[in-house]
Design a protein around this nucleic acid. Structure first.
Lengths: 189, 189, 189, 189
DNA sequence: TATGAATGAGATTTCATTCAT
DNA sequence: TATGAATGAAATCTCATTCAT
């Protein structure tokens, strides 16, 4: 995991807050600086420009998520279905609380650093995919394209997290989402 | 469906083109005006400001999509599974072709005319939901919360459309996505 | 007196209302047109541009005022002091009710038509001046420069009309203003 | 007196120059910035918008005027008539030299920071009024409403300053104006 | 390293004026 | 004569970025 200095962390936290709640062009760097309690010029000591700061935010959020998931499914006493359940619950919880544009490229496209970020994204998908593949290999699951399924999962969770149906709680969503995926790929015995 | 004048249509088309190919803040209204062959001031006769123009573009595209889906599943000779297949294929095709326009699925969060949007979004979800409910009633499907499933569908299609795995074609995604959903909710007989 | 068509009058009335209550650059021709219930283009049938409309307003207001005063002091049974009193009372009343920028060139300077308006302005001053001169000739008044005095009068009345001291009525101002002028130029006998 | 930073002063000077020589809507902020040798954006660090800059210019000029007058009449060796003479001469000179700036006498009506203005205006009137009252108390003057008279004075001076009669010099106006006022309120002994 | 005043390119927006109907 | 949609020049204003301190 990349290490961030204390000041860098403060900036990233502030920027994350902002980019999460407004579109790119409505986030003012002066506000970010203010919220991070640093001077505007200081931002430029740590990030080349606004776009790079944006990608740095996405990168960090993603890294933390991947790290967490990675930790959770390392426990060997879990079978693939349990691992997948863990992943889905974790993602749901995370997105439900902070429906960030975590996996959204948003409106900013061409950026040199975006490569680095793309890799992180792929890391998440590969992580989920590997669990599915493991399940397939062990005869639990059946899936003609585990990579696609792996991408579906954060995507559909995100959609209900941003606009949750009224009067629904996180647990209900978690349960339904797990069922939805498992019924689709699990082999009935 | 809302009616647009000839000039409005020309502006919306030009703007759609622009907003689809560049981030919001890199789209210049003077370019939009130029592409639509109207004066810059004319834009302001039809749209209060840049933001409203942006949302008008998205709203029109979204409305057309909902309209199309609605038309397609009206055909009574289709059973619920066929209807759902139609919806998924249609969504996938549309997003796959015009993937940059990611907001298209109604995931527009902070929008001035939010009510109008919310209604359209609900319209899409309700449309999909109704097909699922119909399937449940007719004994084809089993789903403890069809509304959630209805929201999943555009969500996960969107996620593979934005970042399609390499070397995959639209048909493969369509097929896999249909399978993914149907295996999850279809009752095996 | 210049004659105005019915439509011209409507436009001038609307414009007068606007120019009186806002600075030149805050008066929109579309508002004037709206208030006059004519099309925006129609304004240009009667007035070459915004500046000319502005001057036309001033010209008309001035003409009316001069006309009125002129009528009032034609009565031959009035002596110069009575005539001056009449003028001051009339001006005060008029300005008190409608503290228009009647004699204010405002911020708009170079305009061909402004010559015409200048003449009207001079007409008012000359009118007042003539009464003073008459008084001097008849031994009532003493004034080393009646033209200056003539210009003072509308000027100082305007200043108290725009910002009247609290709790003062028009009559009190009228009375005080008359005294102020007459004590200054009347010869004590 | 409000303090202005060096840069603020440079901007105000440049703006004063511009607003004095052209109508409001013909003054370009880019020109002001250029003349003050600052960036266009710098103007906005010191003044919220064009209007506020405009009023800041007027306010500063007006404040200086009031300040100057205030200083001049503090000299105790002057009797009320001499003080009034000083005031009138000073006002006349100032307006005669810089006549275009007609708003200067506090006749600014619709202004955002209206309270601040009102106070300054009242300050000027009270200053003049106090001299008259002093004269009345010392038996030099007679005036049934010194406040009204105090308001007349800047008002009538303004009117001859904007449109001075042809071929007249400042001294003539000064002399006549003083006579005009003193003859009106002075008690003949 | 840290700052935030200053910048100015370039964005959005306005509105007097035109002109086809 | 009357209109008001259309115009686009030109205005105001923003904000990412720089740089002297």
């Amino acid at each position: 995991m990349k290490k961030y200095s204390e000041k860098e962390t403060r900036i990233l936290n502030a920027a994350s807050e902002m980019f999460t709640s407004r579109p790119f062009h409505k986030v003012l760097l002066s506000d970010v600086a203010g919220a991070a309690s640093v001077g505007k010029g200081t931002l430029y000591l740590y990030f080349k420009n606004k776009e790079e700061l944006y990608f740095a935010v996405l990168f960090r959020e993603f890294s933390i998520l991947v790290e967490q998931l990675s930790e959770k499914i390392k426990q060997d006493n879990l079978n693939p279905a349990e691992k997948l359940t863990t992943i889905i619950k974790c993602l749901t919880k995370r997105l439900f609380v902070k429906a960030t544009n975590v996996e959204l490229l948003g409106n900013v496209v061409s950026c040199p650093k975006s490569e680095e970020w793309k890799e992180k994204r792929v890391e998440l998908w590969t992580l989920i995919e590997s669990v599915i593949v493991q399940g397939v290999e062990q005869g639990y699951f059946e899936d003609s394209n585990p990579r696609l399924t792996a991408q579906y999962i954060p995507g559909f969770i995100r959609s209900v997290s941003i606009f949750p149906p009224e009067n629904i709680d996180c647990e209900t969503i978690q349960k339904h989402a797990c069922e939805f995926v498992l019924k689709s790929i699990k082999i009935e015995k």
